[in-house]
C-alpha cells in the first residue's frame, strides 16, 4: 500500500498577532526574523494519520510531497523524522502558489508520476491561506473520491473508513481506494520526530523535481488585488476593585446598565 501525504511549509500560524505584518506594496507577508517556517499543523496531523495506518499495515509506504522552494525540504525532513519513508519536493515558489487551481494542477501531475497509490492524505486547509481548496481539487483532477475533515482514518479491504467532523456531530463514511482524505485537528496531536527515525531520515530517499518537468501550463483562476491587516478600533476598559467581590459588582452593574444582561 502506498500513502501520499501532501504537506506545505508556512509561516508559524501561532505567532503573536503583533508580529504579523504585511507589505501592502507587494501584497505579501513580511517574514519575521528569528521565527522558523513550520509545517502546516493540519498537514502534520495528516502525516500522523498515515503513520497510524502504517502501524497497523507495516508494509505501507508513506511518501511526503510538497510544492515549494528549497527551504521546504525542512518540512519533508520533518515528515521523514516522524516516520515517513520517502519525500518529493516539487520545486516552485516559496510557500507554494496562492492559486488553489495552480497548486492542485501541479500536484496532480506530480502525483501521476508517483502512481500507483492507494491513499492521499492532507490537511483540511493550509494554516496560512486557510482556503481549503487544493485537496478536493486534487481529487477532482485525479478523478478519485474524497472525504473532508477526518477525525480518524482506517484502511481495510480496499476501502477507507473515515470519521468526519460536521458542524454539530460526526459521520462515518466509507469510500473505495484510491481516495483522498483531508485531516482536521480532531485527529489529535501529531507525534514528535523521534531519534531513531531522525537518524534514518538522512538516508531516506528525497527527490527534487523541477516544476517545469511536472507541469508547464497551469492557468491562473484568480488575481490577488490586495492583502491587508484589518485595523482594530476597540479600546478596552479594564475594571477592577479592591476585591474580587467588588470587581464582580462593578462588572455586573456595567452589563446591567448597558442592558447586556
Amino acid at each position: 500500500m502506498k500513502i501520499l501525504v501532501c504537506v506545505k511549509q508556512i509561516q508559524d500560524p501561532e505567532i503573536a498577532p503583533g508580529l504579523f505584518k504585511v507589505d501592502e506594496a507587494s501584497n505579501s507577508v513580511v517574514a519575521v526574523p528569528g521565527i522558523a517556517q513550520v509545517i502546516s499543523p493540519y498537514d502534520e496531523q495528516a502525516i500522523e494519520a498515515a503513520l497510524r495506518i502504517k502501524e497497523k499495515t507495516p508494509e505501507a509506504k508513506v511518501v511526503v510531497i510538497t510544492l515549494g522552494a528549497a527551504s521546504a525540504r525542512d518540512v519533508l525532513k520533518h515528515g521523514l523524522s516522524m516516520g515517513a519513508d520517502e519525500a518529493v519536493l516539487v520545486e516552485g515558489p516559496k510557500n507554494g502558489s496562492a492559486d488553489g487551481f495552480v497548486t492542485a494542477s501541479v500536484l496532480s501531475e506530480a502525483i501521476k508520476k508517483l502512481a500507483p497509490f492507494d491513499l492521499i492524505l492532507t490537511g483540511r486547509q493550509s494554516a496560512d491561506l486557510d482556503a481549503g481548496v487544493v485537496a478536493c481539487g486534487l481529487a477532482e483532477l485525479l478523478g478519485i473520491p474524497s472525504v473532508n475533515f477526518a477525525k480518524s482514518v482506517d484502511v481495510s479491504d480496499g476501502n477507507v473508513v473515515v470519521d468526519r467532523v460536521l458542524d454539530n456531530g460526526f459521520e462515518k463514511i466509507q469510500v473505495q481506494l484510491p481516495a483522498l482524505v483531508t485531516v482536521s485537528n480532531e485527529m489529535g496531536p501529531a507525534r514528535k520526530p523521534n531519534l531513531r527515525e531522525t537518524m534514518k531520515a538522512s538516508r531516506k530517499p528525497m527527490q527534487s523535481w523541477p516544476q517545469n518537468d511536472v507541469n508547464k501550463d497551469a492557468g491562473a483562476s484568480q488575481e490577488l488585488i490586495r492583502l491587508y491587516v484589518p485595523i482594530k478600533e476597540k479600546h478596552c476598559e479594564i475594571i477592577g476593585g479592591t476585591s474580587a467581590g467588588e470587581t464582580a459588582q462593578m462588572l455586573v452593574r456595567k452589563l446591567r446598565d448597558g442592558r447586556l444582561i
Partner: peptide
C-alpha cells in the same frame, strides 16, 4: 473560488471577494 469570504462585490463585471486568511490576521481581496 474564494472560500471564507466576508463580502463580495462586482467590479468591471468581475466578482471581487474579500476573504479571511492567515488565521484571521489578514484579509485578501481577490
Amino acid at each position: 473560488i474564494a472560500t471564507n469570504c466576508e463580502n463580495a462585490a462586482i467590479e468591471n463585471g468581475m466578482i471581487v471577494a474579500t476573504r479571511v486568511c492567515y488565521g484571521g490576521k489578514a484579509r485578501s481581496v481577490l
